[in-house]
Simulated assay, not measured.
Amino acid sequence: MQYGFFIDAKYCVGCKTCQIACKDRSDLAVGQLFRKVNNYEDGGWVKRGEAWISNVTSYWLSISCNHCANPACVKACPTGAMYKRTEDGLVLHNAADCVGCQSCVWACPYDAPQYNPEVGKVHKCDGCIDRVQAGLRPVCVDACPYQLIDFGDIAELRAKHEGTAHVKGLADPNRTTPSLLVNPPTGAISSPIGGNRK
């Protein structure tokens, strides 16, 4: 069992409702986000024959902790405050063991752990573990007005949705094996070789 997220970036309009719902649930300070909705742009003008044409790609991507199978944050944490649960694969943080060194912040290629200067410790997305244990979905999933985010066992998400973790704008998934599946817009796949495409 490995919990993960599916993001349908092909149809995301960047409304940031998921980001706001997460921020509200977690009562985060200004500048702190567990889920971030970012705009990615790529391309330019290319010459074809005598004409110049645009091959610009622009899309929104909602990303939080990807509860990676091989989490860099867990490896980097010197105290064991950052850990991965064996029963469901969620990557969690124990604030009592955190010394605020920020090693996890620097190690994570997805910018998931957030340093809180008010308490001198790190905190992060916990997959809304309290809601999941109560049979509910994470707030980001329920908040999306277009229902473009899904959460569950990553194997089931891969069977249900088409997608990949090889997306331009994100780190190489071979590094941490994120529990993430993205339905990318045209031109957003970074490397279809080795991806999770069906």
Score class of each variant (00 low, 15 high):
Gln2Lys: 09
Tyr3Leu: 06
Tyr3Lys: 14
Ile7Ser: 09
Asp8Met: 02
Lys10Ala: 13
Lys10Pro: 00
Lys10Thr: 04
Lys10Cys: 04
Lys10Tyr: 13
Val13Cys: 11
Val13Asp: 15
Lys16Trp: 09
Lys16Arg: 15
Ile20Ser: 12
Arg25Lys: 15
Arg25Asp: 07
Asp27Trp: 03
Val30Glu: 14
Val30Arg: 11
Gln32Met: 14
Leu33Arg: 05
Phe34Asn: 04
Phe34His: 10
Val37Met: 15
Asn38His: 06
Asn39Pro: 01
Glu41Pro: 00
Gly43Thr: 03
Glu50Lys: 06
Ile53Ala: 05
Asn55Val: 06
Ser58Cys: 03
Ser64Phe: 01
Cys65Thr: 03
Asn66Gln: 09
His67Arg: 07
Cys68Phe: 01
Cys68Trp: 04
Ala69Cys: 07
Asn70Glu: 13
Pro71Asp: 05
Pro71Leu: 10
Ala72Glu: 11
Val74Asp: 07
Lys75Thr: 03
Ala76Ile: 04
Met82Ile: 13
Arg85His: 06
Asp88Phe: 02
Asp88Glu: 10
Val91Leu: 03
Asn94Ile: 08
Ala95Cys: 01
Ala96Thr: 13
Val99Leu: 11
Cys101Ala: 08
Ser103Asp: 14
Val105Ile: 12
Pro109Trp: 11
Tyr110Thr: 00
Asn116Leu: 06
Glu118Gly: 12
Gly120Ser: 07
Lys121Val: 05
Val122Ala: 15
His123Tyr: 13
His123Arg: 13
His123Asn: 15
Gly127Glu: 11
Cys128Gln: 04
Asp130Gly: 10
Arg131His: 11
Ala134Gly: 08
Ala134Arg: 06
Gly135Asp: 11
Leu136Arg: 14
Ala143Val: 01
Cys144His: 06
Pro145Gln: 10
Tyr146Gly: 03
Ile149Ala: 09
Asp150Gly: 06
Phe151Asn: 03
Phe151Trp: 10
Ile154Tyr: 10
Ala155Cys: 02
Lys160Glu: 08
Lys160Trp: 05
Thr164Ala: 12
Ala165Lys: 02
Val167Ser: 05
Gly169Val: 00
Leu170Pro: 01
Leu170Ser: 00
Asn174Ser: 13
Arg175Ile: 04
Thr177Tyr: 15
Pro178Leu: 09
Ser179Met: 08
Leu180Trp: 02
Leu180Asp: 05
Pro184Val: 02
Thr186Lys: 14
Gly187Thr: 01
Ser190Trp: 00
Pro192Val: 00
Ile193Ser: 07
Gly194Asn: 03
Gly194Thr: 01
Lys198Phe: 14
Lys198Ile: 04
Lys198Asp: 12
